[in-house]
Amino acid sequence: MEYVQEVLWILAKIVALILPLFGVVAYLTYAERKVLGWMHHRKGPNRIGFGGLLQPLADAGKMLMKEVMIPAQADKALFVLAPIMAFAPALAAWAVIPFGDGLVVADINVGLLYLLAMTSLGVYGFILAGWSANSKYSMLGAMRTGAQVVSYEIAMGFALVGVLMASGTMNLSDIVRAQEGPFWHWYWLPLFPIFLVYWIAAVAETNRAPFDVAEGESEIVAGYQVEYSGISFGIFFLAEYANMILIGALASVMFFGGWYSPFHGIPVIGPIFDLIPGPIWFIAKIAFFLFLYIWIRATFPRYRYDQIMRLGWKVLIPVTVVWLVVESIFVLTGFGPWF
């Protein structure tokens, strides 16, 4: 009986997290189209609802009502399994993200390891989708996605190690607490090269522009998703956006002080800004990173595939290794307020 109660309480917390997350995913697609529109000096979606505000709901309805096709030559079981494999880890990873002091579903001490595991699992979804569809475009897209995600995962892993060296814990709440203080106490300052590597790797991990050769609509149509239709395509879409938000949240936790206000601990103005609750600061930081995603997409042309692989292996990995060495010296000397 006690267990049932506990599980129900956990479920309530999960639903309280997932439902707003879905709203954010839906309106992130709207925000992306709107912001891209403004950056192109056009209006973006503006027909459905006031200023296009109901557009995401219309899109969701449309996707649900479309036929889900399974190609005749496909491996049917894997073809249906693939979207689930892509989407479930993108949701499950949210279990360890702290929204405020103590506001977390699962406060485990290997949070970062769990996150790395979950984000790595997503690649199975892409590979299974491309392989099972038995279409040449899908296959090419899957190979590209697999190699790209896997390459950037190393750079990202090294970046996470940099944060671990500074914080000395894998618990995400404790990582945030280790950065307590105004914005120059956060890890983006001593770990700036690592933060840049993390962010570039993150954009590549989520297959976003300018590293979106996996989808490359002008060369391989839509890559691994080409045979998917209706809601099975929609689930891949949701997974991509859920991952974007997750990566933004992770960047705020690791480099931008999670739920702390930028002026925390400064006399006079600190307490004024502390009146705004932590989760709001956290969400504002995520929103900033999401805007950055869209901004980058509107600004940079797409990389060529060999350039992407070169950047991952020959630039990002050496940069992180060098900075880890520098950071070891910081740790030994107890440099600044950070170590």
Partner: peptide, 26 residues
């Protein structure tokens, strides 16, 4: 780790329900 287990099961179940809804409604 119980919340983790529940969360993973929930995420898988949720994805399945979502996919099934597409097969039913479309």
């Amino acid at each position: 780790y119980l919340p983790i287990l529940v969360f993973i099961l929930f995420a898988v179940g949720f994805s399945i329900v979502f996919l099934a809804a597409g097969f039913v409604l479309g």
